[in-house]
Structures are given as structure tokens and as C-alpha cells.
Amino acid sequence: MYSNILSISNFVYIASAFVLILSFIVRKKSIDVAGKSLFVLAFFIEFLYFTLRFIETYQKGYDYLPVTNAFESFVFFTLCLGFLQTLMIKKTSVFIVLFSSIVISATLLALSIAGFSQHIEPLIPALKSNWLVAHVITSFLAYAAFAINFVASSFVLYSSQKRIDKIVGSIMFGGILSLMFTAVIVSITHSSPLVVGIVFLVLISTMLFVLSFILKPYTSKEWIEKPLVFGFVLLTIGIITGSIWAKYAWGGYWSWDPKETWSFITWIVYLINLHFARKKKSARFLAYLGVIGFLSVLITYLGVNFVLPGLHSYGSN
């Protein structure tokens, strides 16, 4: 019934993206504000959706936060990203808000064609724990912070004067955008997502690469470092709460299950990134680490759930 609210929220996110693109071109303060306001509005609509789903889950008698299957977890990821972005909406540069809204709507659009079950089902025994809430919220806020770090990193590379940086930046943004367009096209034409995706990736990345030459280099480290520190602390807490939970569920803090291992690898990548940031390395250097870090997040979040089997596999249902 209320699942329309999620679509409305997605629609508002897309609208905010268009307004932000406009403000990027026109550079008018009022359009800035309008775009950002739409973003915040979209977040609150999404939050309303989440709250309603939460209430429904309780009404069905399953007392848990709706973050436990693939569909819910993707929605929760976008919600966390929207939340972090809303918290610092005033200070954030337009392009970061723009790409946050693109990441969110791309994820939600892709989710609508992915065909995951949207039913509210009761929890399997392994997930019935009080640690679930702390573990999932901290981990997802960390992922969201790293997504912002990734967007800023990609923008540093995209606007750099070195050709290789521009190529990497174009592919990264091209990847996000082609995810979005692929989702739209596939939902209309039902063609193969892989083929459409690759075509879009090549087209959009090439177009972005050409466009990149009109940009002035962006070398501010602010939006690389702030989310990096925040995300790292939350990831640390997420791993710790997860490992305490594991102690109660599986018999030990650490089992080298693929998800654990990849979250550990992600932690190491950002740990290195953080220390290099403290050593005042260049924005370009940190940006590359940010890109590597986010790829590692994607492997932890997606690759492990859908490719490598393990103790965390229930996330793929």
C-alpha cells in the first residue's frame, strides 16, 4: 500500500538531481537552495516510508528493524546516505549532494527491477539478536559515509588535469549514472541488464570524459576527509558490535567468514587512507585510496552476499 511512498521519494530525489544539475550550470544561489531542499524533502519522505514499514513489521508481530533482507538493506543504505547528506546539507558542495541523490535514485531504481522480495517475513533464528540493530546501523552509516567520500574522491579525479585521473573519474561517475539509466531502460524494454549496462557505461563515461575538460580542478580535501573519519569510526564500531554478536551466535568473535574478511579488508584500506590523510598527502592520492576503499565496500556489501557463500548469506534472499 504505502510502497508508493518509496517511489514518490525516489521521484523527488530525481527531481532534486535535475535542479542541482541546473544550479551547477547556472550557478544561482536560489536554485542551489531549491535543489538541496528537494533532497531533504525526499529524505523525509523516504524516512516516512521506512517508519511505516517498521510499524507494519511490528503489527505483524515480528519485532525487528526492517533491515534484514536484500530489499530492506538497499533501502536502508539509501536512507543512511540521505540522512548523512541531510545532516550536513548546508555546508556540502552542490556536486556532492547531486551525486548523493543520483546514487540513491540509481540504487532505488535498480532495486525496483532487481526483483527482490518486498514481503515482510519473520526473522530466522540467527538474526534474532539485540546486536542486530547496533551492528547494522553503524555499518550502514559507515557505508553511506564512504559513499560520500567516494563521490568527493571521484570528483577530485574527474576534475584533475591528468588524463588518467579524468578517465578513472569518468568511469566512476559513468558507472553510477549507467546503473540508473540501465534500470530505467531494462524496466521498460526488459532487455538484458548486462548488455544495456555496458553500452551505457561506455557511452556515458566517454561523454563525461569529454565534458570533464571544461571543469576547473577541484582539490579540496574537506569532503574526502570528513566522511573518511566518520565512516572509519563507525565501521570500527560496526565490526566490533558484529564480532560481539558473532561471539553469541557462532561461538567466537571472528571466524574469517568472507563477509568478516572483506569488512576487515575494507577497514584496512580506510585505515591506510586515514593515516595518509593525517600525513597530508595530496587530494589526488587520497582520492585514489577512496575509490579503492569504496570498491572494497561494494565487494563486502554486494560481492559477499551474492557471490561468495558464507555465514552472512541470508542477505541475498
Binding site: 568472507p258 574478511t261 579488508i265 584496512i268 591506510i272
Partner: peptide, 21 residues
Amino acid sequence: SLTLAVVLLSLIAFFSAIGTI
């Protein structure tokens, strides 16, 4: 040195990753 830390951590991360596949 931080260099050694980075090298060691990278090795640990690398072999951990290999271990999962």
C-alpha cells in the same frame, strides 16, 4: 615507520582477500 605499517597491512589485506576466493 608508517611505510612498514602500510606494507604489512596491505599484505594482510591482500592475502585475506585471496583467502576468500
